[in-house]
Structure formats: structure tokens, C-alpha cells
Deep mutational scan, measured.
Amino acid sequence: VRQEELAAARAALHDLMTGKRVATVQKDGRRVEFTATSVSDLKKYIAELEVQTGM
């Protein structure tokens, strides 16, 4: 499950970095929206997932 969450989070980051205004991911069973202003929060979430998956 964590691998899927990590892939979704990375895709969301890619979307935001390429101009999409809002990206949505499932985080702990709930839907979370990230915007360009919350990229740093999304990067932290990705880092947490990488630690949890041993990457």
C-alpha cells in the first residue's frame, strides 16, 4: 500500500511542478489536496513515505 501512496504522491508533485493548480492524494485513508503553495508539505509527505518503504 505504501508503494502505491508513494507513487501517487510523486505523481501529484509532478503535476504541481508542471503547472497543475491542485493535486489530490489519499493520505491515511482520507483525501488531501495540495497546491503550489503546499509543495514543501507534499515533499515532506513523500520523504516520510520513502522512509516507511525503505527507499
Rank of each mutant, 00 (worst) to 15 (best):
Val1Glu: 13
Val1Leu: 12
Gln3Trp: 14
Glu4Val: 11
Glu4Cys: 10
Glu4Asn: 11
Glu5Pro: 06
Glu5Cys: 09
Glu5Trp: 06
Ala7Ser: 10
Ala7Asp: 13
Ala7Arg: 12
Ala7Ile: 11
Ala8Lys: 09
Ala8Val: 08
Ala9Arg: 00
Ala9Glu: 01
Ala9Asn: 01
Ala9Tyr: 05
Arg10Ser: 04
Arg10Ala: 04
Ala11Asn: 09
Ala11Pro: 00
Ala12Leu: 04
Ala12Val: 04
Ala12Gln: 02
Leu13Gly: 00
Leu13Lys: 00
His14Gly: 06
His14Gln: 11
Asp15Ser: 07
Asp15Asn: 07
Asp15Ile: 05
Leu16Arg: 00
Leu16Val: 03
Met17Phe: 04
Met17Tyr: 05
Met17Asp: 05
Met17Cys: 11
Met17Ile: 08
Thr18Glu: 11
Thr18Tyr: 07
Gly19His: 04
Gly19Glu: 03
Gly19Ile: 01
Lys20His: 12
Arg21Gly: 12
Arg21Cys: 11
Arg21Gln: 15
Arg21Leu: 15
Val22Thr: 13
Ala23Gly: 06
Ala23Pro: 03
Thr24Ile: 14
Thr24Phe: 07
Thr24Gly: 07
Val25Thr: 04
Val25Ile: 14
Gln26Ser: 11
Lys27Gln: 10
Lys27His: 07
Lys27Asp: 03
Lys27Trp: 03
Lys27Phe: 06
Asp28Met: 01
Gly29Leu: 02
Gly29Asn: 05
Gly29Ile: 02
Arg30Lys: 14
Arg30Trp: 06
Arg30Val: 15
Arg31Trp: 15
Arg31Gly: 09
Arg31Met: 15
Arg31Tyr: 15
Arg31Asp: 15
Arg31Val: 15
Arg31His: 11
Val32Ile: 13
Val32Pro: 04
Glu33Ile: 09
Glu33Thr: 07
Phe34Ala: 04
Phe34Cys: 06
Phe34Leu: 07
Phe34Gln: 03
Thr35Phe: 10
Thr35Lys: 04
Ala36Gly: 09
Ser38Gly: 10
Ser38Met: 15
Val39Arg: 02
Val39Phe: 05
Val39Ala: 06
Ser40Phe: 03
Ser40Gly: 15
Asp41Val: 06
Asp41Cys: 08
Asp41Pro: 01
Asp41Thr: 06
Lys43Val: 14
Lys43Ser: 05
Lys44Ala: 15
Lys44Val: 09
Tyr45His: 05
Tyr45Asn: 02
Ile46Gln: 00
Ile46Asp: 01
Ile46Gly: 00
Ile46His: 00
Glu48Asn: 06
Glu48Asp: 10
Glu48Ser: 08
Leu49Gly: 01
Leu49Lys: 01
Leu49Phe: 02
Glu50Phe: 05
Val51Asp: 12
Gln52Glu: 15
Gln52Pro: 06
Gln52Leu: 15
Gln52Gly: 10
Gln52His: 11
Thr53Pro: 09
Thr53Leu: 15
Thr53Asn: 14
Gly54Lys: 08
Met55Lys: 13
Met55Gln: 15
Met55Asp: 13
